[in-house]
Amino acid sequence: MMVALFYYKLEKFGGIRAVKDYVKQALSDLGIRTCEFSWKDHKYICKLRDFTACKTIYGNLLSKLLDYTCFRHLDTQLEQNNILTFNIHGEWLFLPTKLVYIHDPGLLVSTFFRHSPLSIVRRAYYIPHNIISKNLVNLYGKSLVVVNSIFSATQLKRLTGLDCQVLYPPVDTHKYRNCGLHDKPWVLTISRFSRFKQLDKVLEVAKRVRDAKFFICGGVNSEDELRYFWYLKRLIDEEKIKNVFLLPNASEQIKTYLMSRSKAYFHPKEDEQFGISIVEAASSGLIPVVHKSGGPWMDILDGKQGLYGYAYDNLEEAVSIVNYVLRQYLKLVNDLAPYNRAKYFSYDKFKIRLYNLLEQVM
């Protein structure tokens, strides 16, 4: 058996690249060969696609039609030769293969649909676009669509009507397992320095929990991320926040050390699709403190307060919970056993779930 992996371009998508690498590794462990196809194989048409995408709504639509035109014939040929096809970048690369993995349903919908305005003239501009888009998205109904969390599944169903199944991203739960004493009143956050990650909330909590230190470790890999990093740095300086430390592009050694000494992991983003760093932190013994929304709440904490971690609705709750976790860590870590929950998202579990999905489409 062979599986053909389709994707857009991975150099700008670290998390998606990781999923692709894990899929490839899992298939290899299962004795299944793979081959790969991406836009890098269509250099000049790829430039046209990049030029049209995100310029106008019809430019976005043209980019999806280019996806379908360039890859559909190849997809059909592969299926005729009993090669299973798997689009692992379903919100960016529009191709209804046998299996389609969608990481962010909101992103899929935002590139396809626009609300029709009240103006008759503008409505006339939007309506044809939305009709064509709906017909294209419906083509995914012939695929086995897979998402990264129960939250993403409910979001995809609500936004598009598509049914799907869940394949949690694999987490290396052995990497940080029981890696230290967790003896400092430290709070850790690991995230890209992106404005979409809402890291300014960490500063707001830190201002109200003065006896703790807050560390933000994250990648700075673009101009936008660099600007956001300097924005946070300026806020820290202007408001004289002495207990927040920004660590851009921190080494693995630094992250491991912080994991080993911190007691709480604070995740500020609302409506996050999943949150691999939360599971990594739980596997090391940190107690997760997440917003009561999205995958962190619905999937990682299983929608239960105080079972695997804690969730907050607002800033005041976040401050109260962080204080509570830091004071009662030794008792809570034994009661909650965060590592046991982290094992549910391990690579071995991922491999079993992936094989079960393959059986459904073979």
Rank of each mutant, 00 (worst) to 15 (best):
G294Q: 09
L139Y: 04
N135M: 10
I321P: 10
S346N: 12
R114T: 13
C179A: 06
P268I: 04
S143T: 06
Y8E: 13
P117S: 01
C70F: 12
I352H: 09
L27E: 06
S63R: 02
G219E: 14
V23S: 01
S293G: 11
V322G: 05
N221R: 09
K9I: 03
G285A: 09
S152P: 03
F71P: 14
L199V: 00
S149A: 13
S284V: 10
G59R: 13
V166Y: 09
Y310G: 10
S116W: 00
F266D: 12
R122N: 14
G294N: 01
E239W: 02
I278C: 02
V325W: 08
P288N: 07
Y58P: 08
D211M: 03
G295N: 09
I57S: 12
Q165N: 15
A153P: 04
P96K: 07
K134D: 13
R177A: 15
I300H: 06
I120S: 12
L307Q: 15
Q155H: 14
V145A: 06
Q328S: 14
S194W: 06
I216P: 06
C217A: 15
E316H: 11
I83R: 09
D21C: 03
V109E: 12
P128S: 02
N148I: 05
L357W: 08
L167Y: 08
I190T: 11
T76E: 14
T154A: 04
K240Y: 11
A250V: 10
Q198S: 12
V121D: 03
I32V: 14
G285N: 14
K242F: 09
N243D: 05
V137E: 01
Q155T: 09
Q165L: 14
G275K: 04
E252F: 01
E280A: 08
L162C: 07
D200K: 05
N60F: 06
K304M: 07
T56L: 08
L286T: 13
A311W: 12
E223G: 02
L93E: 04
Y231T: 05
Q305I: 01
E252Q: 05
Y7R: 04
P338V: 10
F13P: 01
Q155L: 15
D21G: 00
K269W: 00
V137C: 10
G180E: 06
L144A: 02
Y22A: 15
D224T: 13
K184N: 11
S116G: 03
W39N: 03
P105C: 11
H174F: 08
G14F: 04
L144P: 03
Y68K: 13
N130K: 04
A124R: 09
I88M: 14
Q273G: 04
T69N: 03
L307E: 11
Y140I: 09
K55D: 12
K255P: 05
T34W: 09
P169A: 07
K269S: 12
S320C: 05
I127F: 00
V137L: 11
K207E: 15
L144D: 06
Y310L: 00
G161I: 03
W39I: 11
V187N: 14
I131G: 00
K12D: 14
T76S: 15
V333C: 03
Y344M: 13
D50H: 01
I132R: 09
I127S: 07
R122H: 10
K55W: 08
V146G: 05
I321Y: 07
I127D: 03
N323D: 14
W92G: 05
Y168T: 07
L203H: 02
H73C: 10
L357M: 09
T154M: 12
S284R: 04
K134T: 15
V289T: 08
